[in-house]
Design a protein around this nucleic acid. Sequence first.
DNA 1: TCAATTGTGCCACTCAGTGGCAAAAACCTA
DNA 2: TAGGTTTTTGCCACTGAGTGGCACAATTGA
Lengths: 223, 223
Amino acid sequence: MTATHAPDPGLSLRERKKLRTREALIGTALDLFSERGFDGATLDDLCEAVEVSKRTFFRNFTSKEDVVMAPTQDMWMAFTEELDRRAPDGGTLLEFLQDALLAAVDRMNDQDWPTRVRLSRRLAARTPSMDAHGLHFCDCTIRTSLATLHHRLAFDDPRDPRPRLALDLLVAATRCAMETWVDLPREPGRTAFAGELRAAFAAIPSTVTLPATPRGTAPGGSD
Amino acid sequence: MTATHAPDPGLSLRERKKLRTREALIGTALDLFSERGFDGATLDDLCEAVEVSKRTFFRNFTSKEDVVMAPTQDMWMAFTEELDRRAPDGGTLLEFLQDALLAAVDRMNDQDWPTRVRLSRRLAARTPSMDAHGLHFCDCTIRTSLATLHHRLAFDDPRDPRPRLALDLLVAATRCAMETWVDLPREPGRTAFAGELRAAFAAIPSTVTLPATPRGTAPGGSD
DNA sequence: TCAATTGTGCCACTCAGTGGCAAAAACCTA
DNA sequence: TAGGTTTTTGCCACTGAGTGGCACAATTGA
């Protein structure tokens, strides 16, 4: 934990240093907040631990919540990039979106991305303001992606709500998958996460036709 | 605007007074923030306008964002109540949820509910923290409703993600409908909102099969 | 009229987040 | 290696959201 990642070469010393303090802030924040709770540690505590001024913190992150959500946000940013790059292969829009997300997960090859996401999600589960921040980021991702879709794909009606619903569905399934994956025993890595994603995606089509059966209706069928 | 609602009779004087300051806070907050921006007016400004101490404000609302989201939250609370009350009629789960929401909208018979929702949503659209708060409340609604569904309906597998996906779909469609309804010319009331809801609901089924057609693919079909 | 209850006002306090400016580190050129 | 330029950081003071405590006022019920 709090591993000092060797930033990619090919960057100037300045850029590497900046990346390193950014990583240090993320790692230390996850450790600190996981141990003492999100409200149990102040920003000053965090900055002191990383030996950085509060001013510097806010040059790297927009809020106290933001630093903890960085791992998940990285994934969603990779997703929007994939949407821009990949060519649709003749399948449905939902399949296109799912492929893009799986490709994005595949790019999260930082060795402790899974650990960080787990810590992050567990914190979010018991910190309303963090969860709200995460949801808002997802919503921003949806809007950005929607613009990309309209730019790259052809829809009959520019006001058709279905592309947007498809994106919402993708995000919902992802959150579903992540929730179960986070608490999986033995804490498996991103391959297992991809598996949960596929399972959640597979459940989508029959969601629409799922019947509402009252509880207590015997299989025999009286009532 | 800032209409002094006559609180329901049958309440003690204390309760009526409390409701009245609550309503005054909501109405004044919407006016104040709409005019000067959410960040352009402080809580102290609001409290001074309503002639109430800041301490009292926080006994009625959890945050500055919360007071502005009250109108929409009322609707979602009515929705969860409807879920508890209504009996499924043999249709799909999604239809059951949609009926419950339409019934909830039907209960929003306060004469200036539409105006308040409009002001509220327009503020949220340009205030990230407000939007985040609203999304988080929706998420809480989903969790509450999911528990209700599992309590009242019979599902094969308690871990089946589909009920949750159905709720997410409902919320997404609702947000869609609200977004278009808010900016409708002539600012029609909740009947028009119900219409937008039905339209968004109708788009759900074919969302799953919507093809991803690359832009520029001529109808003739060369490429 | 007198308790008990409950909502309110006031005050001081913590902490997130911002703006400005000066110092330092890194970069580039000669 | 010395120069000036640019970027990043540290420091400091400030605003404003949100909390806790306690005394006071209003409603309620007897």
